[in-house]
């Protein structure tokens, strides 16, 4: 697929912008974290589009964000499961 550019994104409505970014991010995240890829992609889509574009171009920044998202997700799930 052709690379996603800032101008392509700018031409799309806001919700479609996240869709486009998610479509590109998801396969990269699956490669890193197959079990949680859908959740992690959902989390990362909260981030600014410009930063998401940067992550698509920079495997290191994507990896560090994915690691961060996993930590947040695990903390969130641990909180959900533990009794008061």
């Amino acid at each position: 697929p052709e690379p996603l550019t800032a101008s392509m994104l700018a031409a799309a409505p806001p919700m479609d912008q996240k869709q486009l970014l998610g479509d590109r991010l998801y396969p990269l995240i699956v490669a890193q974290q197959p079990n949680l890829a859908g959740k992690i992609t959902g989390m990362l889509l909260e981030i600014d589009n410009s930063e998401l574009l940067h992550m698509l171009e920079s495997p290191e920044s994507l990896k560090s964000k994915v690691d961060e998202a996993i930590a947040v997700l695990q903390a969130h799930q641990a909180k959900d499961c533990s009794p008061k």
Partner: peptide
């Protein structure tokens, strides 16, 4: 029907439209 519990985070599924976060008010 709508679930009354908030599931966080919403899961991105390739090939399905991304609905985003229900509590985001643009």
């Amino acid at each position: 029907s709508h679930a009354n519990t908030v599931t966080w985070p919403p899961e991105f599924r390739p090939g399905e439209p991304w609905k985003g976060y229900p509590n985001i008010d643009p």
